[in-house]
């Protein structure tokens, strides 16, 4: 996600998907013989839209032309293009923040996780298309204790209803995973 802010402190592009380098995951060869679930995950990842080259060019254009850049939006456009936020989305934000706070401040990690889960489940229910709320919660239950890296598979678990692969497929597949910035 990126936000563009001009020299006067005015947002000229609201939060949007942003990349400046095409992910190698889009062009990877999926090797034969992978476990079915991993194979399916890789194939969905390859379908995720990637417009990094155009987005990088837009940034460069803004740097060179400033307010005259065709990628600069008016204040009204900035507001109208910002993410939808109704009562459910706002409640989900509060629930997610509350869960994060409880997890961070609990006496022990186990207590923190137990306190956070109900609020994060509620955030998922209220705002099912928000990947941040879901992936952050999933990875905390699917990453093995002591692991040095987060579990990016975020597979089925007994704490939350969803998981990465099944939710991606249910949401329309990798093609629908990211909303490409409207340049």
């Amino acid at each position: 996600m990126a936000v563009w802010i001009d020299e006067q402190g005015t947002i000229v592009r609201p939060a949007e998907s942003a990349g400046i380098e095409r992910s190698p995951l889009r062009d990877m060869e999926v090797p034969d013989g992978l476990p079915e679930r991993i194979d399916r995950m890789f194939r969905e990842v390859k379908k995720i839209p990637d417009d990094a080259e155009n987005y990088r060019a837009a940034i460069v254009d803004w740097v060179e032309h400033g307010a005259a850049s065709s990628f600069v939006l008016s204040p009204d456009e900035v507001v109208s293009r910002s993410l939808p936020r109704g009562d459910d989305e706002a409640r989900a934000a509060a629930c997610f923040e509350l869960g994060e706070y409880l997890r961070r401040t609990a006496a022990t990690p186990v207590l923190g996780q137990a306190a956070a889960v109900p609020w994060w489940r509620e955030a998922h229910r209220l705002y099912p298309s928000n990947w941040t709320y879901k992936r952050q919660a999933w990875t905390l239950v699917t990453t093995p204790e002591g692991a040095t890296e987060n579990d990016l598979m975020q597979g089925p678990n007994d704490v939350y209803e969803g998981n990465w692969l099944d939710d991606v497929i249910a949401g329309g597949g990798g093609e629908a995973y990211t909303v490409v910035a409207r340049l």
Binding site: V78, V79, S82, P84, A90, A94, C95, W119
Partner: peptide, 25 residues
């Protein structure tokens, strides 16, 4: 939002216009 067990409140973001932003400032 209130968590009675832990005695804390969470205040969510404003929803005055249906968008995440109300101003470009």
């Amino acid at each position: 939002i209130h968590d009675e067990t832990h005695g804390v409140w969470a205040i969510g973001p404003a929803t005055t216009n249906g968008h995440a932003l109300t101003t470009a400032v």
